[in-house]
Amino acid sequence: MEYFIQQLINGVTLGSIYGLIAIGYTMVYGIIGMINFAHGDIFMVGAFIALITLLAVVAMGITFLPLVLLIVLIVSMLMTSVWGWSVERIAYRPLRGSFRLAPLITAIGMSIVLQNFVQVVQGARVKPLPPQITGGITIMEKDGFLVQLSYMQILIIVTTVLLMAGFTMLINKTSLGRAQRACEQDQKMASLLGVNVDRTISLTFVMGAALASVAGVMFLLYYGVIDFYIGFLAGVKAFTAAVLGGIGSLPGAMLGGLLIGLIETFWSGYFSVEYKDVAAFSILAIVLIFMPSGLLGKPEVEKV
Protein backbone atom coordinates (compact mmCIF):
# COMPACT_ATOMS: atom_id res chain seq x y z
CA MET A 1 0.00 0.00 0.00
CA GLU A 2 2.73 2.45 0.96
CA TYR A 3 4.65 1.47 -2.11
CA PHE A 4 1.54 2.06 -4.20
CA ILE A 5 1.00 5.54 -2.81
CA GLN A 6 4.62 6.44 -3.39
CA GLN A 7 4.35 5.33 -7.00
CA LEU A 8 1.11 7.26 -7.35
CA ILE A 9 2.84 10.45 -6.21
CA ASN A 10 5.74 9.87 -8.57
CA GLY A 11 3.37 9.08 -11.41
CA VAL A 12 1.29 12.22 -10.94
CA THR A 13 4.47 14.32 -10.92
CA LEU A 14 5.73 12.79 -14.14
CA GLY A 15 2.25 12.98 -15.65
CA SER A 16 2.06 16.70 -14.89
CA ILE A 17 5.18 17.32 -16.94
CA TYR A 18 3.84 15.23 -19.83
CA GLY A 19 0.49 16.97 -19.59
CA LEU A 20 2.06 20.42 -19.90
CA ILE A 21 3.88 19.40 -23.06
CA ALA A 22 0.87 17.52 -24.45
CA ILE A 23 -1.26 20.69 -24.34
CA GLY A 24 1.03 22.25 -26.92
CA TYR A 25 0.57 19.32 -29.28
CA THR A 26 -3.15 19.14 -28.87
CA MET A 27 -3.77 22.87 -29.32
CA VAL A 28 -1.72 23.13 -32.47
CA TYR A 29 -3.39 20.04 -33.85
CA GLY A 30 -6.77 21.45 -32.97
CA ILE A 31 -6.24 24.74 -34.72
CA ILE A 32 -4.30 23.82 -37.86
CA GLY A 33 -4.55 20.04 -37.93
CA MET A 34 -0.84 19.54 -37.90
CA ILE A 35 1.47 17.63 -35.57
CA ASN A 36 4.18 20.01 -34.43
CA PHE A 37 7.06 17.56 -34.11
CA ALA A 38 9.41 20.32 -33.04
CA HIS A 39 7.38 20.83 -29.87
CA GLY A 40 9.43 18.34 -27.85
CA ASP A 41 12.54 20.25 -28.79
CA ILE A 42 10.92 23.52 -27.78
CA PHE A 43 10.58 21.87 -24.37
CA MET A 44 14.28 21.05 -24.46
CA VAL A 45 15.16 24.64 -25.43
CA GLY A 46 13.04 25.79 -22.50
CA ALA A 47 15.02 23.58 -20.13
CA PHE A 48 18.32 24.92 -21.48
CA ILE A 49 17.21 28.54 -21.22
CA ALA A 50 16.15 27.80 -17.65
CA LEU A 51 19.56 26.32 -16.81
CA ILE A 52 21.43 29.26 -18.29
CA THR A 53 19.17 31.79 -16.58
CA LEU A 54 19.53 29.98 -13.28
CA LEU A 55 23.32 30.06 -13.48
CA ALA A 56 23.27 33.72 -14.52
CA VAL A 57 20.93 34.74 -11.75
CA VAL A 58 22.96 32.89 -9.14
CA ALA A 59 26.15 34.42 -10.53
CA MET A 60 24.58 37.84 -10.09
CA GLY A 61 24.32 37.11 -6.43
CA ILE A 62 20.60 36.55 -6.03
CA THR A 63 20.24 33.54 -3.79
CA PHE A 64 16.73 33.82 -2.39
CA LEU A 65 15.35 30.62 -3.90
CA PRO A 66 11.70 31.53 -4.62
CA LEU A 67 12.84 34.71 -6.37
CA VAL A 68 15.43 32.79 -8.39
CA LEU A 69 12.82 30.26 -9.47
CA LEU A 70 10.35 32.98 -10.40
CA ILE A 71 12.93 34.77 -12.54
CA VAL A 72 13.96 31.49 -14.17
CA LEU A 73 10.36 30.59 -14.89
CA ILE A 74 9.46 33.96 -16.39
CA VAL A 75 12.62 34.33 -18.48
CA SER A 76 12.33 30.79 -19.75
CA MET A 77 8.66 31.20 -20.65
CA LEU A 78 9.29 34.47 -22.48
CA MET A 79 12.31 33.30 -24.43
CA THR A 80 10.87 29.91 -25.30
CA SER A 81 7.73 31.67 -26.54
CA VAL A 82 9.90 33.63 -28.93
CA TRP A 83 11.36 30.34 -30.12
CA GLY A 84 7.92 28.84 -30.60
CA TRP A 85 6.73 31.92 -32.44
CA SER A 86 9.79 31.93 -34.72
CA VAL A 87 9.43 28.27 -35.58
CA GLU A 88 5.84 28.86 -36.64
CA ARG A 89 6.75 31.99 -38.57
CA ILE A 90 9.72 30.47 -40.39
CA ALA A 91 8.72 26.90 -40.96
CA TYR A 92 4.92 26.59 -40.87
CA ARG A 93 3.24 29.80 -41.93
CA PRO A 94 4.79 29.97 -45.41
CA LEU A 95 3.49 26.46 -46.00
CA ARG A 96 -0.06 27.08 -44.93
CA GLY A 97 -2.29 26.16 -47.81
CA SER A 98 0.31 23.80 -49.15
CA PHE A 99 -0.33 20.05 -49.14
CA ARG A 100 -0.90 18.47 -45.75
CA LEU A 101 2.42 16.70 -45.43
CA ALA A 102 4.54 19.80 -46.09
CA PRO A 103 4.36 21.33 -42.60
CA LEU A 104 4.84 17.88 -41.09
CA ILE A 105 8.12 17.50 -42.93
CA THR A 106 9.32 20.98 -41.96
CA ALA A 107 8.32 20.19 -38.38
CA ILE A 108 10.65 17.21 -38.35
CA GLY A 109 13.25 19.44 -39.96
CA MET A 110 12.83 22.09 -37.28
CA SER A 111 13.16 19.42 -34.62
CA ILE A 112 16.52 18.35 -36.03
CA VAL A 113 17.59 21.98 -36.42
CA LEU A 114 16.81 22.77 -32.79
CA GLN A 115 18.55 19.65 -31.49
CA ASN A 116 21.68 20.29 -33.49
CA PHE A 117 21.69 23.97 -32.71
CA VAL A 118 21.67 23.27 -28.99
CA GLN A 119 24.21 20.51 -29.42
CA VAL A 120 26.59 22.83 -31.23
CA VAL A 121 26.07 25.83 -29.00
CA GLN A 122 25.87 24.08 -25.64
CA GLY A 123 27.90 20.99 -26.27
CA ALA A 124 26.78 17.39 -26.38
CA ARG A 125 27.66 16.54 -22.82
CA VAL A 126 24.98 16.04 -20.19
CA LYS A 127 24.44 19.18 -18.12
CA PRO A 128 24.00 18.54 -14.42
CA LEU A 129 22.33 20.81 -11.92
CA PRO A 130 22.61 20.13 -8.20
CA PRO A 131 19.21 19.78 -6.51
CA GLN A 132 17.84 23.22 -5.69
CA ILE A 133 14.78 22.28 -3.73
CA THR A 134 15.39 19.59 -1.17
CA GLY A 135 13.40 18.02 1.59
CA GLY A 136 9.78 17.03 1.72
CA ILE A 137 6.98 15.76 3.84
CA THR A 138 6.73 12.22 5.07
CA ILE A 139 3.12 11.22 4.66
CA MET A 140 3.27 7.79 6.29
CA GLU A 141 5.77 5.35 7.55
CA LYS A 142 5.47 1.62 7.98
CA ASP A 143 8.14 -1.00 8.59
CA GLY A 144 10.82 1.50 7.71
CA PHE A 145 9.29 2.38 4.33
CA LEU A 146 8.73 6.12 4.01
CA VAL A 147 6.10 7.56 1.73
CA GLN A 148 7.59 10.87 0.75
CA LEU A 149 6.10 13.86 -0.98
CA SER A 150 9.04 16.10 -1.78
CA TYR A 151 8.71 19.87 -2.00
CA MET A 152 9.82 19.60 -5.61
CA GLN A 153 6.90 17.31 -6.36
CA ILE A 154 4.52 19.67 -4.61
CA LEU A 155 5.89 22.55 -6.68
CA ILE A 156 5.44 20.63 -9.92
CA ILE A 157 1.91 19.49 -9.15
CA VAL A 158 0.74 22.86 -7.84
CA THR A 159 2.27 24.77 -10.76
CA THR A 160 0.68 22.39 -13.23
CA VAL A 161 -2.74 22.59 -11.64
CA LEU A 162 -2.59 26.40 -11.53
CA LEU A 163 -1.42 26.67 -15.13
CA MET A 164 -4.01 24.28 -16.40
CA ALA A 165 -6.78 26.07 -14.52
CA GLY A 166 -5.64 29.41 -15.92
CA PHE A 167 -5.35 27.92 -19.32
CA THR A 168 -8.79 26.36 -19.30
CA MET A 169 -10.17 29.73 -18.30
CA LEU A 170 -8.27 31.44 -21.09
CA ILE A 171 -9.75 29.08 -23.66
CA ASN A 172 -13.29 29.15 -22.32
CA LYS A 173 -13.77 32.69 -21.12
CA THR A 174 -11.60 35.15 -23.01
CA SER A 175 -11.99 36.48 -26.50
CA LEU A 176 -8.67 35.01 -27.55
CA GLY A 177 -9.82 31.56 -26.49
CA ARG A 178 -13.06 32.06 -28.30
CA ALA A 179 -11.17 33.07 -31.43
CA GLN A 180 -9.02 29.96 -31.12
CA ARG A 181 -12.05 27.73 -30.86
CA ALA A 182 -13.59 29.50 -33.83
CA CYS A 183 -10.45 29.06 -35.94
CA GLU A 184 -10.48 25.42 -34.97
CA GLN A 185 -13.90 24.96 -36.53
CA ASP A 186 -13.81 27.22 -39.57
CA GLN A 187 -10.80 29.42 -40.21
CA LYS A 188 -12.22 31.12 -43.26
CA MET A 189 -15.44 32.06 -41.54
CA ALA A 190 -13.54 33.31 -38.51
CA SER A 191 -11.46 35.59 -40.69
CA LEU A 192 -14.58 36.91 -42.37
CA LEU A 193 -15.86 37.89 -38.95
CA GLY A 194 -12.73 39.93 -38.42
CA VAL A 195 -10.56 37.42 -36.54
CA ASN A 196 -6.91 37.68 -37.53
CA VAL A 197 -6.35 33.96 -38.10
CA ASP A 198 -2.59 34.16 -38.59
CA ARG A 199 -2.16 36.01 -35.35
CA THR A 200 -4.42 33.60 -33.50
CA ILE A 201 -2.35 30.67 -34.76
CA SER A 202 0.89 32.41 -33.75
CA LEU A 203 -0.48 32.99 -30.27
CA THR A 204 -1.40 29.32 -30.05
CA PHE A 205 2.20 28.40 -30.74
CA VAL A 206 3.38 30.97 -28.22
CA MET A 207 1.09 29.56 -25.54
CA GLY A 208 2.12 25.99 -26.29
CA ALA A 209 5.78 26.95 -26.13
CA ALA A 210 5.30 28.79 -22.83
CA LEU A 211 3.70 25.73 -21.25
CA ALA A 212 6.41 23.48 -22.67
CA SER A 213 9.06 25.74 -21.17
CA VAL A 214 7.43 25.43 -17.76
CA ALA A 215 7.63 21.68 -18.23
CA GLY A 216 11.28 22.18 -19.17
CA VAL A 217 12.00 24.12 -15.99
CA MET A 218 10.28 21.44 -13.90
CA PHE A 219 12.15 18.68 -15.68
CA LEU A 220 15.45 20.43 -15.05
CA LEU A 221 14.74 20.94 -11.36
CA TYR A 222 13.29 17.45 -10.84
CA TYR A 223 15.85 15.33 -12.63
CA GLY A 224 18.84 17.65 -12.44
CA VAL A 225 20.32 16.54 -15.76
CA ILE A 226 19.51 17.72 -19.24
CA ASP A 227 21.06 17.27 -22.64
CA PHE A 228 20.17 18.28 -26.17
CA TYR A 229 18.30 15.03 -26.75
CA ILE A 230 15.73 15.11 -23.93
CA GLY A 231 13.17 16.72 -26.21
CA PHE A 232 12.80 13.66 -28.36
CA LEU A 233 11.54 11.11 -25.88
CA ALA A 234 9.59 13.62 -23.81
CA GLY A 235 8.04 14.90 -27.01
CA VAL A 236 7.04 11.44 -28.19
CA LYS A 237 5.57 10.63 -24.77
CA ALA A 238 3.63 13.87 -24.64
CA PHE A 239 2.40 13.31 -28.16
CA THR A 240 1.28 9.84 -27.09
CA ALA A 241 -0.48 11.46 -24.15
CA ALA A 242 -2.27 13.89 -26.45
CA VAL A 243 -3.40 11.08 -28.74
CA LEU A 244 -4.42 8.89 -25.82
CA GLY A 245 -6.59 11.66 -24.37
CA GLY A 246 -8.04 12.50 -27.77
CA ILE A 247 -6.00 14.88 -29.85
CA GLY A 248 -7.54 18.33 -30.15
CA SER A 249 -9.11 18.10 -26.69
CA LEU A 250 -7.53 20.09 -23.86
CA PRO A 251 -8.85 18.06 -20.91
CA GLY A 252 -7.88 15.04 -22.97
CA ALA A 253 -4.26 16.17 -23.11
CA MET A 254 -4.17 16.69 -19.37
CA LEU A 255 -5.78 13.32 -18.69
CA GLY A 256 -3.56 11.59 -21.24
CA GLY A 257 -0.43 13.09 -19.71
CA LEU A 258 -1.46 11.94 -16.28
CA LEU A 259 -2.24 8.43 -17.51
CA ILE A 260 1.03 8.03 -19.38
CA GLY A 261 2.91 9.25 -16.30
CA LEU A 262 1.06 6.80 -14.06
CA ILE A 263 1.43 3.85 -16.41
CA GLU A 264 5.14 4.46 -16.68
CA THR A 265 5.81 4.76 -12.97
CA PHE A 266 3.61 1.83 -12.00
CA TRP A 267 5.12 -0.36 -14.65
CA SER A 268 8.64 0.48 -13.56
CA GLY A 269 7.62 0.14 -9.92
CA TYR A 270 5.97 -3.26 -10.16
CA PHE A 271 7.43 -4.87 -13.27
CA SER A 272 10.54 -3.65 -14.98
CA VAL A 273 12.06 -0.25 -15.59
CA GLU A 274 13.43 -1.31 -18.97
CA TYR A 275 10.01 -1.95 -20.43
CA LYS A 276 8.21 1.15 -19.17
CA ASP A 277 8.10 2.75 -22.63
CA VAL A 278 6.80 -0.48 -24.11
CA ALA A 279 4.00 -0.42 -21.54
CA ALA A 280 3.08 3.19 -22.26
CA PHE A 281 2.94 2.72 -26.00
CA SER A 282 1.11 -0.62 -25.75
CA ILE A 283 -1.64 1.00 -23.72
CA LEU A 284 -1.85 3.67 -26.39
CA ALA A 285 -2.23 1.03 -29.10
CA ILE A 286 -4.92 -0.81 -27.14
CA VAL A 287 -6.91 2.35 -26.39
CA LEU A 288 -6.74 3.45 -30.02
CA ILE A 289 -8.02 0.09 -31.24
CA PHE A 290 -11.15 0.39 -29.13
CA MET A 291 -11.51 4.18 -29.08
CA PRO A 292 -9.94 5.52 -32.25
CA SER A 293 -10.53 9.14 -31.31
CA GLY A 294 -8.90 8.80 -27.89
CA LEU A 295 -10.45 8.91 -24.45
CA LEU A 296 -12.04 12.36 -24.61
CA GLY A 297 -11.76 13.15 -28.30
CA LYS A 298 -14.88 13.78 -30.32
CA PRO A 299 -15.34 11.40 -33.21
CA GLU A 300 -15.53 13.26 -36.47
CA VAL A 301 -19.05 13.10 -37.77
CA GLU A 302 -19.57 14.24 -41.27
CA LYS A 303 -23.03 15.37 -42.15
CA VAL A 304 -24.25 14.17 -45.50
Binding site: L176, G177, R178, G194
Partner: peptide, 23 residues
Protein backbone atom coordinates in the same frame (compact mmCIF):
# COMPACT_ATOMS: atom_id res chain seq x y z
CA UNK B 1 -24.19 33.42 -27.71
CA UNK B 2 -20.54 32.65 -28.35
CA UNK B 3 -21.19 32.72 -32.07
CA UNK B 4 -22.34 36.30 -31.70
CA UNK B 5 -19.42 37.14 -29.40
CA UNK B 6 -16.85 35.97 -31.93
CA UNK B 7 -18.18 38.56 -34.33
CA UNK B 8 -17.20 41.25 -31.82
CA UNK B 9 -13.74 39.79 -31.42
CA UNK B 10 -11.65 42.78 -32.51
CA UNK B 11 -13.12 45.21 -30.05
CA UNK B 12 -12.84 42.69 -27.23
CA UNK B 13 -9.24 41.86 -28.06
CA UNK B 14 -8.27 45.50 -27.97
CA UNK B 15 -10.03 46.21 -24.69
CA UNK B 16 -8.64 43.14 -23.00
CA UNK B 17 -5.00 43.75 -24.07
CA UNK B 18 -5.03 40.62 -26.17
CA UNK B 19 -6.81 38.62 -23.50
CA UNK B 20 -4.18 39.19 -20.84
CA UNK B 21 -6.81 41.36 -19.22
CA UNK B 22 -9.32 38.59 -19.60
CA UNK B 23 -7.39 36.27 -17.33
Amino acid sequence: LENLMIAQHNKLMKDSLFSIGGI
